[in-house]
Simulated scan of single mutants.
Amino acid sequence: IFVAETKSWREAQDYCRGLFYDLISIHSAVENEAVYNVSASQNVWIGLFKDSWKWSDGSNTSFRYWKPRQPTNSPGQNCVAAVFIDKGQWNDLNCVGKQPFVCSGENLILIKENRTWIEAMGYCREHHIDLVHITTKHIQGKVAETAKNATSPHVWIGLRYTCEFNFWFWTKSTSACYQNWAPGQGPEGTYACDVTGAIQATGRQQWVGLPETEKLNFICYANTGK
């Protein structure tokens, strides 16, 4: 998702995490081309930052597309922009500079295999990005539409319950406040440990808490270009 509004790298990261999933991670030349195709700008922030050069969403990929003599590793140049005037090659820049940016999070894939919640999360992280996080009404609508094609009555999402502290949380930290619990579920419910979140595949398509050992279809965020 291309965002034309200019922000610092950290502001862009917060924006993407609040409304979508995260700043985009680029795993291949094909994905770099896909980012170019959605971008109307010469420079856009991507999710790479200098902590041994890691991706914001935790992706594990060795793909790099640096400009010649980049990164410079100059003091303060700890964030990365794709520079499409230079064939989309990457440049390390000061993180406080203002750039447009690209978020990930609208490409959803329904996996019609019945797996436990832990297995589903592992599959999404190995083959795509992660289990889907529903942080806005807009994303809820897209997830609900995708879930209609499931072969199980519920579909796993990236929501988990901690019995120690008695609250629900997304597996990736987010400040989103959006909720869509079924009656008696979520903060109104009483749960044992090892409970995780799912969306109803039909009906009102609200969220419920289920034992993580149940085997259900699940929805992953997909990488750009896949």
Rank of each mutant, 00 (worst) to 15 (best):
T135D: 05
A176R: 11
E145N: 14
W156S: 02
V143G: 01
S173P: 07
I134F: 02
K172C: 03
T136I: 04
E145P: 00
A176K: 12
V143M: 03
A147I: 04
H154Y: 14
S175Q: 15
C177K: 14
F169N: 08
F167V: 05
C177E: 15
N166H: 13
I134R: 08
Q140E: 13
T136A: 01
T146K: 15
Y178M: 04
V143E: 00
Q140I: 05
F167T: 09
L159K: 12
Y178G: 00
E145Y: 11
W156A: 02
T151L: 09
T135V: 15
T135C: 04
N166T: 11
Y178C: 00
A147V: 05
E145I: 09
V155N: 00
Q140V: 04
T146R: 14
A147M: 06
A176T: 10
A147N: 07
E145A: 13
Q179P: 01
L159V: 04
C177W: 15
I157A: 01
T162L: 06
C163P: 05
A144L: 06
G158S: 07
A144T: 10
K137G: 04
Q179W: 10
C163Q: 15
A150W: 08
K142G: 01
A144C: 03
T174A: 05
W170L: 02
G141Q: 14
Q140T: 08
G158V: 05
T174R: 11
T136D: 01
W170H: 09
T135R: 15
K142A: 03
I157L: 02
C163N: 12
R160I: 08
Y161C: 03
I139C: 01
E145L: 10
F167A: 04
I134D: 00
A150P: 01
H138V: 12
F167I: 07
W168Q: 03
